[in-house]
Design a protein around this nucleic acid. Structure first.
Lengths: 152, 152
DNA sequence: TGCAAATGGTTTCATATGTAACTATAACGC
DNA sequence: GCGTTATAGTTACATATGAAACCATTTGCA
């Protein structure tokens, strides 16, 4: 019954259309951060996400990285081949299963992480600072609810 | 002073990192809708956005479409050339300025719009229905605040 | 065992996207 | 008027992305 003033056949107002708004906001935020580490380390967003996951979970396989980042395995494979080549990620073969790789950050990889993680957090803090405490709380709660559904 | 339990150098928890969460949510939502009209009309997201804007504002130029959709002019140009070819958008030349095009939906374009706009709204409603009234209000308010800043 | 099916990962190919260069026209300054 | 600069839009190129085919290995099971 909501939205009587928006008959279904009327032209869509993009700027009030929630999915569109989310998309614009999300792209602006992520891109701002990515531009930052891209410029400084020539690191793509997918590559950074792989590194972030490996910083938390050492020894994952590529498939597990894909699961945790919600990226597809091809993207992960490509990111890894670049990260291994630049020497930020180490890759060994699982003993007991020669298909599986065993991944981790190298020393150099950790050094990058030490710079990028705070930078990312700073962007996040900056974004959150536009909201007051009450809004922040609601936002997190709302995200929880929406995300509980969507990732079917 | 927030987030003391997240020292800056600690590994980033992607699943609690706001930009990442926004990105995942936004992609899931937009993709679900796009899959829908893509399958039925072989319409890409950029193409649909162009059509949605032309449904509201008849006679825009390509540049104006780009402004309103926040897409870059190349993307718009490509979308338009396909839409004009399929006959869903009409393109004339502005009299008085031969560089400028004058765009609008064709009959067939309107027919597509009549199907896709309600479908999009239905997805949006469905998403919003996961929230209660209070949460919906906060969400819109929060988006307003965040968007007032980001699109620098 | 041994062979079909499943799994981890990479490669290939087709498509999408962004940046820069380009074309045509219009606006501006003298 | 006329050369310079700006603007609308397209094209070209380089890179990113996704789907499907592929290879190697492992698992399931007769």
């Amino acid at each position: 019954m909501a939205e009587e003033h928006h008959p279904d056949h009327a032209p869509l107002e993009l700027e009030n259309f929630l999915p569109y708004r989310l998309s614009i906001l999300s792209n602006a935020v992520s891109q701002a951060i990515a531009d930052d580490y891209q410029r400084r380390f020539d690191l793509s967003m997918t590559e950074w996400r792989v590194m972030a996951v490996l910083a938390r979970f050492d020894g994952l396989s590529a498939r597990e990285v894909a699961e945790r980042t919600l990226m597809d395995k091809v993207a992960v494979s490509r990111a890894l081949s670049k990260l291994v080549e630049t020497g930020w990620v180490t890759r060994a073969i699982h003993d007991g299963d020669k298909r599986r790789s065993v991944l981790g950050l190298s020393e150099a990889g950790w050094a990058i992480h030490e710079v990028v993680a705070p930078m990312a957090r700073e962007h996040e803090r900056n974004l959150m600072s536009k909201l007051d405490e009450e809004e922040r709380t609601w936002l997190l709660r709302i995200l929880d609810k929406l995300q509980a559904i969507e990732p079917k």
